[in-house]
Design a binder for these strands. Structure first.
Length: 491
RNA sequence: CGGGGAGUGGCGCAGUCCGGUAGCGCAUCUGGUUUGGGACCAGAGGGUCGCAGGUUCGAAUCCUGUCUCCCCGACCA
């Protein structure tokens, strides 16, 4: 393994790719566009899952599991839905292989062709709504609040580890309601859950907003989203929550009888976040030395490295460390003591920095004598020598401080890279020189949005929920506008 | 699908132009010395050179075909 990571300023995307591999988060698999999530990376994902799952349960949802395969005909039942996904579906056409009659290996058995091809789910609205038809008859069956943790496949043309892979892991919530108002409230509630998770757990500040019709989910009436800014100034959609109206209920004939005995179609929502969050996490905080993980999601929160001259000294240090470890664990802090003898301390320091461990303790002969320990924090790379007395509480505070401070740093970065712009010239100028989020007036038409996208590669990330009413004119068309929207180049 | 690049021990690469039976660094294993910011010495193990044909006494190297992966664009979470 070579030593230095490419730097962010040198080549941001190479830095990202290398970091993902070197920090042992994930690697490419033999199949194009698919990834192997390695144990260290998966541990982070598990922590995300745990936190999110708790939040879903707290808001009344339960988990279920629907199948991987979807009959091809299902996908076409909702017109705009098939339109949106048809181009990136993996299709199962056969169910058997046989030995190649003319040589080695196996071939698809042509006699094992399926009557109806199966689609590997790109998302599960269709199977789920076809199932809901059987589950919902009365208003008493509503609301139906279900989530599933699953993998989905979208045959993307260009892929990048975590940010866009052909197969990815995610969570998809699918709810059914008796009224539009209730479904909209659910959509907004889950957006809040996502925003809260991003900010409190990932320490990534997000802008909550609504997508324009162009950027809407295929089959939705409205798509709400959270948008985060990465360190290269590009936007990353970190989560979406869709108000589906009665579209899928219509397509799959899901009706319920209300209190008055009237039949009506059910109102739906769906919402999801994926392993893409891993990409957001990495790009939001990490630096040229490697990952910087928020303590709440770090698989290892504290690593302890002994510095010793002989076995006897190591034994003394280990004894001291055992006490510290015990105290830390009592506070619910995860600790790793790395006393392996195949690497010198300096190597270990670099290694755990690469892996983003928030706090490192080093203890050597000097510390033994003085009753101290060296405490290093990953985010600022600062070190100090602290008394062993009360070290657990000290570390606990430090972890909280790191969590808060990386959030603030990311927020500050976003604010410094957000610009209010009133002319198309300035718009272009900022995109090409600085990047970041641009708050600008837009006339509300898809045509203008398309043209701006064609000319600048910037898209409307969202119409912010907290948009201030402000009279202005569209930077592109000059037509009147009532508020600013968020433009950016995006992942 | 367009444009670039690459397939050689676990990883990163050299060797290919000019054919002669495979090498370097890292990692691994053994032994020893080390350990406050990426240690050193000595020894060892490990490769049908992406795949299939062809040319040749002889192919990682030349020819033909084929597969795959990576990067940059158009599609998307």
């Amino acid at each position: 393994m070579s030593k230095a990571l490419p730097t962010r300023s040198e080549n941001y995307s190479e830095w990202y790719n290398e970091l993902v591999k070197r920090a042992d988060l994930a690697e490419n698999s033999p199949v194009r566009g698919c990834m192997v999530i390695k144990p260290y990376g998966y541990s982070i994902w598990e922590k995300m899952q745990r936190a999110l799952d708790d939040m879903f349960k707290e808001t009344g949802h339960t988990n279920a599991y629907f199948p991987l395969f979807i009959p091809k005909s299902y996908l076409s039942k909702e017109a705009s839905h098939v339109e949106g996904f048809a181009k990136e579906c993996a299709v199962v056409t056969h169910y058997r292989l046989k030995n190649d009659p003319n040589g080695k290996g196996v071939v698809v058995d042509p006699e094992a062709k399926l009557e109806e091809e199966l689609i590997v789910r790109p998302t599960s609205e269709t199977v789920i709504w076809s199932t809901y038809k059987n589950w919902i008859q009365s208003y008493r069956d509503l609301p139906l609040l279900i989530n599933q943790w699953a993998n989905v496949v979208r045959w993307e043309m260009r892929t990048r580890l975590f940010l866009r892979t052909a197969e990815f892991l995610w969570q998809e919530g699918h709810t059914a309601h008796a009224t539009a108002q209730e479904a909209v409230a659910e959509t907004k509630q889950m957006l809040e859950v996502y925003a809260q998770f991003a900010e409190e757990w990932m320490a990534v500040p997000v802008i909550k907003g609504v997508k324009t019709p162009n950027e809407r989910f295929a089959g939705a009436e409205d798509t709400y989203c959270i948008e985060a800014m990465m360190q290269d100034g590009k936007a990353l959609q970190a989560g979406t929550s869709h108000f589906l109206g009665q579209n899928f209920a219509n397509a799959f004939d899901v009706k319920f009888q209300d209190k008055e005995g009237k039949l009506d179609y059910v109102w739906g929502t769906s919402w999801g976040v994926s392993t893409r969050l891993m990409g957001a996490l990495i790009m939001a905080h990490s630096d040229d030395a490697g990952l910087v993980l928020p303590p709440k999601l770090a698989p290892i929160q504290v690593v302890i490295v002994p510095i010793y001259r002989n076995d006897e000294q190591l034994a003394q240090i280990s004894e001291k460390v055992a006490e510290i470890t015990k105290d830390l664990k009592k506070l619910g802090i995860s600790v790793k003591y790395d006393s392996s003898d195949n690497a010198k301390p300096g190597f270990k320091f670099a290694e755990y920095e690469l892996k983003g461990v928030p706090v490192r303790l080093a203890m050597g002969g000097r510390d033994l004598e003085n009753g101290t320990v060296e405490v290093a924090r990953r985010d600022t790379k600062t070190k100090e020598t602290v008394s062993v007395e009360g070290i657990a509480a000290y570390v606990q505070n430090l972890l909280n401080d790191i969590q808060e401070s990386i959030y603030k740093k990311a927020l500050q970065f976003r604010e410094e890279n957000t610009y209010k712009v009133d002319s198309f010239e300035e718009f272009n100028n900022i995109l090409d020189t600085k990047g970041g989020f641009i708050l600008a007036h837009w006339d509300g038409t898809s045509e203008t949005e398309e043209k701006i996208k064609e000319e600048t590669k910037a898209t409307i990330r969202c119409i912010p929920l907290n948009q201030e009413a402000e009279e202005g004119v569209c930077i592109y068309s000059g037509k009147p506008s009532k508020g600013r929207v968020v433009f950016a180049r995006a992942y």
